[in-house]
Amino acid sequence: MIAFVVRRLLQSILVLLAVGFIAFSLFTYVGDPINNMVGQDTTLAQRAELRERLGLDDPFVVQYGRFLLNAAQGDFGISYRHRRPVAQLIAERVPATLELSLVAAALALFIGVPMGVYTGLHRRGFLSQVFLALSLIGISLPTFLIGILLILVFGVLSQDINAAIGFHLVPQLPTFGRGDTVQLGWWSTGFLTESGLLALILPSITLALFQMTLIMRLVRSEMLEVLRTDYIKFARARGLSNRAVNFGHALKNTLVPVITITGLQLGSIIAFALITEQVFQWPGMGLLFIQAISEVDIPVMAAYLMLVGFFFVVINLVVDLLYYVVDPRLRADKAVAAGHQ
């Protein structure tokens, strides 16, 4: 156990060092940092002095070490475009992304699991076929298209649709930004205002849909697998009620992989949030990153890279350790489960 933990920890640190290396190379080799800081009329001597003062003459390893040390303390430098510390910019954006991701994850879990259980139990039922067909469409529609369709229906055409059918069926929902937010310390939340909650509806559905179909298919296949096993047959032979067999025996055993994989999916929700944020102009980290790419704002790009890398490494480490604790049998299978997309 200890050997396993140490090995995983070492591997995580290596990954972080590699990500940090990419981020640092970006800083060093793309453009000249001095050029980004000074005006045109700065003399060569002044530039050299600045270079000296910022330590840009130091050997590569020294600079890399300093970069990592600063990053570990949350100092990612100053955004070229916004002229403000990157850490500040990101701290402002983190709540928006995390709130959106959490709501989406909850939606995916609380709708996806029951749908999966239903389709697993009623394999050939009509509703199951409908769910499965819908899930295939859900996987085939790119996230941004789902968002655009929702905007079209609930933002642009809702009044026309209502007028055409004669009663108020399609509500008009906000399609842009977060609505009003309330400041709790440094955390800005949209959960406490009506417009904030309304603004969450369309983006969170957009973000949740893909994960929902994924969870549904996963639960379904796990249920089908478990229902075939001997101990389920034995439980039925003992005369247990359907309910006790299905939920007490079968569902319980499917939940271990579902929970761990949902944990892993939290990471990809945050990655996909980037697309949703772009569609709905949601002021989160992803939008900041996309803008940074198009504006070549390297400090922001590097910081996002480091942050996302750190986040994923932590999630994976926790999930791996959970695997080890919960069910050693799963260790061999986890790679397959994480291998979607």
Binding site: I293, M301, F312, Q341
Partner: peptide
């Protein structure tokens, strides 16, 4: 090991990073 590490990041993010890096370089 490389495959393991890469699997921990969603593909779309990796593609975005590579494309974004190429764009800046």
């Amino acid at each position: 090991r490389i495959a393991d590490v890469q699997l921990t990041f969603p593909a779309i993010l990796i593609a975005l990073l590579i494309d974004g890096l190429a764009r800046t370089v």
